[in-house]
Design a protein around this nucleic acid. Sequence first.
DNA 1: AAGCTAGACAACCGCGTTCCG
DNA 2: TCGGAACGCGGTTGTCTAGCT
Length: 393
Amino acid sequence: MVRPPCCDKLNVKRGIWTAEEDAKILAYVSKHGAGNWTAVPKKAGLRRCGKSCRLRWTNYLRPDLKHDSFTPQEEEMIIRLHAAIGSRWAIIAQQLPGRTDNDVKNYWNTKLRKKLSDMGIDPVTHKPFSQILVDYGNIGGLYKCGNRIGSLNRDMIKNAFMSKSQHLYQPSPPPPGFSNINSHLMMSTTMAVSSQAESIIPGGLLNNTSDNMIMNSLGNYSMNSSVDLLTQLQAIKLVTEASNCANNMSAQFYHEGSLLSSSSLSLPSSSSSSSSSSSNCSTAGQEKSPLNFSWQDFLLDEDALLSTDPQERNNIVEQSQNVIFLPNQINNENYNTTQTNNTVQRMDYGAVPSYEFPATSSGASSFVEAMVDRENEMFLEFPDLLEDPCFYN
DNA sequence: AAGCTAGACAACCGCGTTCCG
DNA sequence: TCGGAACGCGGTTGTCTAGCT
């Protein structure tokens, strides 16, 4: 391995930093400012690689860092952004004042990934395991009549059921031989990416040119496989706007996340569309107070969706669209993103979005906790379903 | 009390990108 | 335009500690 010149010294110290070394870094930065890290070890009197000095400063010593535990709001923001842009920790961290990419990455790897898995959601794709199961079935021919998945992990079955409550999907007719409850499961697990795009981005809710610009761009996402920084910023904006506006939409986000991350958004290379865009909450969004939240709001009326009446189906889909994605009502003075010299500046939120989570009887304080609580409630509500390991039979 | 294990977090490594002469 | 140095990022590894057996 070829070490950088600044590290290519035999006597470079490695490992845990001492308080004395920290003090030297702090003294140096306070005097000269952060930067020119290759010169820092020599000027500060440290036997460390410049790269290591920079890391120590950015991840630990910076005065603006928060060292307390993550709040539920931060936790949810990480999940949302990860769903939207994947493991772009630096970008995600920019949306969380006082947090570093390393912080976010560690928190994800040690906490959130496991929590999502426990909730039945694949932390990589943000899709329910049940959908992966169905995808697997499509490949392996599980749909064919008489096939059973009784040999599959019971937890996976459980997760499949859970996903019904956590995801709002476009309906698709159940495969032949599936019962009504099966179709519930299937509906929750089958959707086409293209239809997602249309379902979560109802153009009718857009009020101004810049919004339309973003939405038109998103509408073209499937045509291009490249995801540039601007695209990700757009995704972040959409995510944060959706969070602020429809603060009870946590469950649906995974739906959106699958769209935004799995495929690829193609947006025009116009920086103005990102920085100057603003949007207003739709009437629909304003009317739906979090206080009036009902879990049923997240669920589609399957019978209506399966109805042969096109108008009835459209009505349901339109309702779901209004629920899923709402333009924001963010005060642009508080919500700002700029891009200068290819450096993405932190978005500042005058007020950190406060999310309302699906109501549970336990009063969970975070989205994840709410989901877990809801899971428990649903198991109590439908114990019979979980007794039968052969849902798909 | 000793050993083991898992979780949390700090630090390192390799690689891609940007900067600059 | 090119090449080397510096920087930044994401993945991985290492270390410490608390809890359990």
